[in-house]
Design a protein around this nucleic acid. Structure first.
Lengths: 111, 111
DNA sequence: AGCGTTGCTACATTAAATGTAGCAACGGGA
DNA sequence: TCCCGTTGCTACATTTAATGTAGCAACGCT
């Protein structure tokens, strides 16, 4: 079963400070998590396709992150492969300004 | 000197794919990075104060992340301690929807 | 049956983070 | 001037996480 409360696993301190943003930052601040959500933005991917999209990251860690993301309710496994849930799509939507910011950042090109 | 191009260090694959968002996701997807930006949101903090804010994270990794964030142009060291640059404040601004999302997520409370 | 794909796991190696300690440099006081 | 607290930062041994390679069982297809 999925967790009933969106609390990130222990391992990174500050995960259970009670502030949801902390749990979220903790979860998103783990390797490949942001990338996975990003790669699923346009639709479902099979585990292998996701692995390819994530530059052949090790299946071990992808599986770990996918499990975490599923427990958090951001990702689900459908007949088409892994896919963002409605909640996951909401999460991705918050990245949109981040993407635009990244473009500006690249123009900035060093301090 | 700071890097001239906002390319995250090697170590995580997909850092130098040419797409700025990838380099940014890579940088932000490292432990404590998001948290540090978050904790600096309201003003400068000394390295010790930041460490306290980050739940006594090890100074080693905080220093590493601060160096990366400085090279990326998001953080600077002022007389008052570590502080977000104008660019860093822009970055933080993109977190605002994330914060609101985190609140919704906590209400959602498991799938 | 045979093949290819799926999601997923084992496990040894390598890399990163942690925790504790402590450094040199600066700034007050006394 | 000497002491004391603070600053930013580093060393280093231990613990934890990620990587890379291999391979499993289950499903679908022909």
């Amino acid at each position: 079963m999925a967790k009933q409360v969106p609390t990130a696993k222990p391992g990174v301190r500050g995960s259970r400070s009670g502030r949801p943003i902390m749990a979220l930052l903790d979860l998103l601040g783990r390797r490949w998590t942001l990338r996975i959500v990003w790669e699923l933005r346009e639709g479902a991917l099979t585990s292998r396709a996701l692995r390819t999209a994530c530059d052949e990251a090790s299946p071990t860690i992808l599986q770990t992150r996918l499990t975490e993301l599923r427990e958090a309710g951001f990702v689900e496994l459908t007949d088409d492969g892994y896919s963002l849930t409605a909640l996951g799509r909401e999460l991705f939507a918050t990245f949109t300004p981040l993407n635009r910011f990244a473009e500006r950042w690249s123009k900035h090109a060093g301090s």
